[in-house]
Amino acid sequence: MKKLTIDERLSKNRFETDDHNPHIVIDKDACKTCSHRACTYCCPAERYKWDTANDKLSFDHVGCLECGNCRLICERLNQGVPGYSWNYPIQGMGVIFREG
């Protein structure tokens, strides 16, 4: 069976995207000091990636499945330290499950 990239998988879903208001906010510069970078391998939608060329975290809230796993594995998101916050998208935006 052909392997599917995460983008191929996410393309099957419907999203009502709010490009300008990310529901999850992180401080990519501050993320450099993170000791585990667990978001890069625990997010089921692979929204967090370590950009090795620029030695910086890249994050895209579009395509987020709103599971909340990052809220629990990232101490900064969990505690909501300055520069970090986790919320659900507002007013019907974000992922729309047609199966569920």
């Binding site: 879903n13 629990l72 047609r98």
Partner: peptide, 13 residues
């Protein structure tokens, strides 16, 4: 699932 069509990929806690 062979031959089936993927219609959704989801995640939840």
């Amino acid at each position: 699932i062979e031959g089936g069509e993927l219609v959704e990929y989801s995640a939840h806690l």
